[in-house]
Nucleic acid binder design. Structure first.
Lengths: 193, 193
DNA sequence: GACCATTCGACGAAATTAGTCGAAATAAAT
DNA sequence: ATTTATTTCGACTAATTTCGTCGAATGGTC
């Protein structure tokens, strides 16, 4: 027997696929119900509204990115290696996230406030992850940073602001060198000479 | 000033993108109008109904496949090389076509007759292209076929029936060898020893 | 000006959809 | 066994969306 939260999660997973394919407006509650193999009222039993499911989906999307970040990071890596992994994962998932957001961009004009709220929360977590990498680097003597907190904010913000097209259409084999180049630009001031 | 057919084609091109992204049902005439930078009535001035645009889109989709086939074929190639190119282009575009049809598969249950009609027309053209390759091969003395017409039908039908998943997820580097294998299976009885 | 080709916004009838309601089924508790 | 709480569902409605129409406006050509 499935616990309530598990059913909710199953529904969110189904909804995630449909939303990311068709966007908010073009996704119907009936579709979500059918794809979840549930009656429509059952969906409303777990979620108060279409927006509430969507909110859960966005949250899940952010959570998945975070998990990928954690999974890809090897604790034994040097801080420099961790930086590279972080950037790599972010760039990879950026494409996915960009697809997701472009699928819904037409549906919300302006009032994306709750999405921004979720983003902000996960941005802060990402900044913290980044800072712990930087702190480790400083302790190791590999990095030279006065204010790691500020530096973490600067780096994550820079990554976030980075235009994705920079990486679109880049061949897999060229990605590595371009990544190195990017990291060089970003972290040149951080590494100890 | 644009001629009437050019405007129609421009609209079809716009509609093609929207239909292939959202399917038939989830694509609205207003969207097509806005994306075409036309008033909605103007769309209806060129096309009688949503289905009529869609029909034109399907036709265009098939036409594009045909053009790709023609473009990829080098007249100076040997018949054997032409066979390979034909199979390669078909497999590549199959993926695209499959995406297109999967986007609309839920919208029409059963009554896809006009789509089948268009397909049939283009299948016949493809069979003729195939036959001319076979005939050339026979004249060259490279192939040994009694009834080229029948052989062309058999080969194209076989290609059409081939499951796409056979090629999905296959790495680019492995594609070549798998293709050779397929061609060997398909054309073994045709090549002169 | 008269004529044709093309464009358009506004409108209505029909279809779709978000969310509700009451009830049925299922499990848990007494 | 009976009550109670949890979960499921189809049918319904009010509000929105959407296809296709209508009549008019625009602009070019004779």
């Amino acid at each position: 027997m499935l616990d309530k939260d598990e059913v909710k999660e199953a529904i969110v997973n189904v909804a995630r696929h449909i939303f990311s394919r068709f966007g908010f407006r073009k996704t119907t509650m009936d579709e979500i119900a059918i794809a979840s193999r549930k009656g429509k009222s059952s969906i409303y039993y777990y979620f108060a509204s279409k927006e509430e499911i969507f909110q859960a989906v966005v949250e899940k999307e952010a959570e998945i990115f975070k998990q990928e970040l954690i999974k890809a990071t090897n604790p034994n890596d040097t801080p420099a290696q961790k930086l590279k992994t972080h950037v790599l994962v972010r760039m990879r998932s950026m494409e996915k996230l960009a697809n997701f957001y472009s699928a819904i961009k037409d549906d919300f004009l302006g009032h994306l406030d709750f999405i921004e709220k979720i983003r902000k929360k996960y941005d802060q977590e990402e900044i913290q992850m980044m800072e712990s990498i930087l702190v480790e680097g400083v302790e190791n003597g590999m990095f030279e940073i006065d204010d790691t907190s500020l530096a973490a904010i600067a780096i994550v913000t820079a990554l976030k602001g980075m235009e994705i097209p920079l990486f679109w259409g880049v061949e897999e084999k060229d990605l590595e060198s371009r990544l190195d180049h990017l990291i060089h630009i970003l972290f040149h001031g951080v590494m100890k000479r």
